[in-house]
């Protein structure tokens, strides 16, 4: 069943002013439960606006958003909070939203707003901290005195602790060093695997998307250009290049190879796949 669905979703910023801008234009989308979706698109293509509709932060100018089959804006204002617990949204640079005295209290902010019992809150905070790899000792620290990467993970834990059915992250690796990036992406992938929840991740890194996502949502000029399995999405580099996007470097290498007639086979997305394909090619050549 589709966990998130939109019908003719349109959103216009500053309607009626000289600064009017159509940020989303007639979006029809249906995201199945359990998917790991990579959302790509050039800056200003509407990605961030779209994901803020998925947890009822923005109200569509026209059109509808369904979460678990329920029309979000038909249910009344009181129900909105519930949708935000169902669809957890981690903003860009989420560490800028930390505010509590201790990491523990900050992670507990979401569950506390849900009105859970202290025992339940405690359980969820420790679980979320475990997912993101924060130690027990770190929970008592002030969120302002831990390192940048730890802050980011604490902030992500603050959303995980709500146990959302859908987890959306807006460029979770922006501004991190390579190791920090890998850690964040791996923890998200682990979370996806262990909980079976739906994950959407906005990213500018085609490599990351190719490596972790099962499907790709390509946004272009306020519209959904395509929503399809990863391998198909990267099968035509030209189209992506024209939208100011790209394909992973390794995919490009194998594209060139196949253009020269040196490689024929499925799309290569990761270094591991590339290695295997190369080995097979070389092995095959030896046999010949």
């Amino acid at each position: 069943m589709a966990v998130i669905k939109t019908e003719h979703l349109t959103y216009i910023y500053g309607a009626g002013t000289p600064y009017e801008k159509r940020a989303l234009d007639d979006i029809n989308l249906s995201i199945e439960a359990g998917e790991f979706v990579g959302v790509i698109g050039h800056t200003g293509s509407g990605k961030s606006t779209l994901i803020q509709h998925f947890n009822a932060l923005l109200k569509p100018t026209s059109g509808k958003v369904y979460i678990d089959g329920v029309d979000v804006w038909a249910a009344g204002k009181a129900a909105l909070q519930g949708f935000r617990f169902d669809v957890g949204l981690v903003f860009q640079y989420p560490e800028h939203q930390l505010f509590e005295e201790t990491v523990y209290k900050d992670i507990a902010f979401g569950p506390r707003n849900m009105g859970l019992s202290e025992r339940e809150i405690d359980e969820r905070v420790r679980e979320a901290a475990h997912y993101v790899g924060l130690t027990e000792a770190m929970l008592d620290h002030s969120p302002f005195e831990i390192s940048g990467g730890q802050k980011r993970r604490a902030a992500i834990a603050g959303v995980l602790s709500m146990r959302p059915k859908v987890l959306i992250l807006d460029e979770p690796t922006a501004g991190l060093d390579p190791r920090g990036r890998d850690q964040i992406l791996r923890l998200i992938a682990d979370y996806h695997r262990t909980t079976g929840s739906t994950v959407l991740i906005v990213s500018h890194s085609m490599e990351d998307v190719a490596r972790y996502a099962s499907r790709i949502l390509i946004m272009n000029n306020a519209k959904v250009h395509a929503y399809l399995p990863v391998r198909e999405a990267f099968s035509d580099p030209e189209v992506l290049m024209n939208m100011g996007l790209s394909v992973p470097p390794i995919t490009r290498v194998f594209h060139r190879l196949s253009q020269k007639g040196l490689y024929s086979g499925p799309e290569v997305l990761t270094l591991e796949e590339g290695k295997a394909a190369l080995k097979a090619m070389l092995g095959g050549a030896k046999d010949a």
Binding site: K77, R84, F91, F109, N113, V159, M162
Partner: peptide
């Protein structure tokens, strides 16, 4: 605006 959105996403109720 950004911070408000982020805290609302965690269920903060300001209204």
């Amino acid at each position: 605006d950004k911070i408000m959105a982020a805290q609302k996403a965690r269920g903060a109720d300001m209204e």
